[in-house]
């Protein structure tokens, strides 16, 4: 901290120094803030509201980690990143973790040296077309003009899909979601493609959502999850198990409403281990015993976060689908706390 003041005096705007050798967890604790990379604005996942507070599903994950590590869900510095800057921001240590609907792929994991700690949303790329076109399948899109939001795996999936089906298309890559929508609504493209969740969120903001249909094809697997740098396994564990704590809490029925009474002690030993009244899981992670309790209290368990930000009662209106608990036939599954 000393160093930062000196540099601050030197450079006016200030260098924030953090001792990387000590490990990210110690850095975060010493700083008292978690630097979390998010998107520059995607309603439902991470977007600042009119008062400048960040809100959304990915933001909820950041807050849970901050609460687990620091005991304060608001001790997060949200760093907006673009598709271009996100990996550098993480690799250079500007952010401690990235929760920016980033798809877990082989090359990002192996070549770019990042550790995906889990999946918080199973997504897939879909298509939206105006209902008046009368298209019912993506395979009928031969010769169509397709608007894509750049900076994601979207371009590659799209090229693969059209190539595999031997049909042609014209891509129009657009930098921001808002501009892509504008092009789509003005008829400059026939189709808008991005992750199905994003399409739903986008359609929700249209003047007449009923005039647009989502095609049934989902052309890719997009497991979105938070990620950290390779090489700091301790920190990776903290983020991984914070996410798992949210998932397990839903599975075990621990909600932000009943967590106070449950943390007094229950008959279920796994709940007790999770909430720190039994065993020493927190200590093993290098955190306090009630870390998971804090994480859950930050914004509720996985299900609560989902319902509050992107669930069926929100304008975005996504069904749980693949993202239901494994006990309900979904893919959301946490390893046991033991």
């Amino acid at each position: 901290m000393k160093k930062s003041v000196i540099f601050g005096a030197l450079t006016v705007a200030g260098l924030a120094a953090g001792a990387a050798a000590a490990g990210t967890l110690d850095d975060v604790k010493a700083r008292g803030k978690l630097n979390c990379g998010v998107t520059t604005g995607l309603v439902g996942f991470a977007a600042p509201d009119a008062n400048g507070n960040w809100d959304g599903f990915d933001v909820g994950v950041c807050r849970a980690v901050a609460a687990a590590v620091l005991g304060d869900a608001n001790a997060v510095e949200f760093v907006p990143t673009t598709g271009k800057t996100r990996f550098t921001a993480l690799a250079s240590g500007e952010i401690d973790m990235l929760a920016r609907n980033t798809t877990w792929t082989f090359s990002r994991d192996v070549d770019l040296k990042f550790t995906f700690v889990g999946v918080n949303y199973y997504d897939g790329q879909g298509f939206m077309v105006p209902a008046e076109l009368g298209v019912s399948s993506a395979k009928e899109l031969d010769g169509a003009t397709v608007c894509i939001q750049t900076g994601t795996t979207t371009e590659l999936n799209l090229a693969d899909f059209f190539r595999a089906n031997n049909i042609s298309y014209e891509p129009v890559p657009i930098e921001t979601n808002a501009e892509a929508q504008q092009q789509y609504l003005a008829g400059a493209c026939d189709v808008y493609t991005t992750d199905a969740s994003g399409l739903a969120a986008t359609r929700a903001t249209f003047e007449d959502p009923g005039a647009h249909v989502l095609l049934p094809e989902i052309i890719s697997k997009e497991p979105l999850g938070p990620l950290v740098r390779h090489g700091d396994n301790n920190w990776g564990d903290v983020v991984r198990w914070s996410l798992n704590a949210l998932i397990t809490a839903e599975e075990l029925g621990v909600t932000s409403a009943n967590i106070a009474e449950m943390s007094a002690g229950t008959n279920n030993p796994e709940v007790n281990r999770l909430l720190g009244t039994e065993g020493s899981l927190g200590e093993m992670l290098g955190l306090s015993a009630d870390w998971a309790k804090n994480a859950i209290m930050a914004g509720g368990n996985y299900g609560e976060l989902f319902e509050k930000n992107i669930g069926e009662n929100t304008p975005i209106g996504l069904a749980r689908g693949l993202n239901a608990q494994w006990t309900d036939g979904g893919l959301i599954y946490s390893p046991p706390f033991r």
Binding site: S92, K113, L156, L158, A159, R163, R229, H230
Partner: peptide, 28 residues
């Protein structure tokens, strides 16, 4: 520290995306 290296070998790999405006032959 980040386990990265400087390498230009990616230039020889398939790009995988399409471009709508092109003056020479190009596909994904």
């Amino acid at each position: 520290a980040a386990g990265l290296n400087i390498s230009y070998s990616f230039l020889g790999e398939p790009a995988g995306y399409d471009i709508n405006q092109r003056l020479v032959d190009y596909d994904s």
